[in-house]
Amino acid sequence: MGVKLEILRMLLYLSFPVGSSGSPPGRVLPASRGAAQEGDFSSGRPRAAFSCALRRPRGAFATVSAVKQRRGAAGAGTMDARFTRGKSPLLERALGRPRTEVSLSAFALLFSELVQYCQNRVYSVAELQAKLAQLGHQVGLRILDALVAREKSGRREIKVLNVLLFVKGPVWRALFGKEADKLEQANDDDKTYYVIEKEPLVNTYISVPKENSTLNCAAFTAGLVEAVLTASGFPAKVTAHWHKGTTLMIKFEEAVIARDKSLEGR
């Protein structure tokens, strides 16, 4: 945070030559820090222009460019050109925990449409699951950033067990409102782990037809977990299976386990 603050301050100084008529950045920033902390995260309204800067670097650049525009600076630099769209109020929002909730029915209906759409474009159950996993992947990549910033104050995990606990705990809580039911390691294989969920939320209202009994729409969740693990630096393959409810089988790459062993004892 401190470093970001410095960068931001430097940027602000760049855009406010000493003695300019703009508001002095040194005064604006400390005040905005309080605003960012006390801010109501659930509100979608554009917040005080500077509060975002502390949490989202992109917002910071956007703010700077917005200030420049306001001052009518003639030379809109290249950075401005890249970030002008940052004037969207969404970027001014803090990354705090969202307090908004939607109904499970709304999600179930949306997910159902998503599955049907995918189903119309594939020929087999395996392809359908791959497609769902691909969509889950998108979600996983995006949620990871928010969660690492929110839950771990920007720190990353370096141990396999910890990253798995991160998935079982914070990731699951943020997405599904509860921890995953179980986390197990395969008896005979040190790179295989299982996350077991008796009744996954995504499957709540899905009944699988007999002829496609192997289909498990939690493939979506599997893709999501795969993205979270891979993007955290633990490349793995994750697949969904019908076993004790739904089991997500996580197979880490050899290198991940080897690295973990070499870290042992440190």
Partner: peptide
């Protein structure tokens, strides 16, 4: 009362759909 869930999963899932 219908069950509630975190809006982020919903939002991101919709995003993934539109992207697709």
């Amino acid at each position: 009362e219908s069950k509630k869930m975190n809006s982020e999963l919903f939002t991101l899932t919709y995003g993934a759909l539109v992207t697709q």
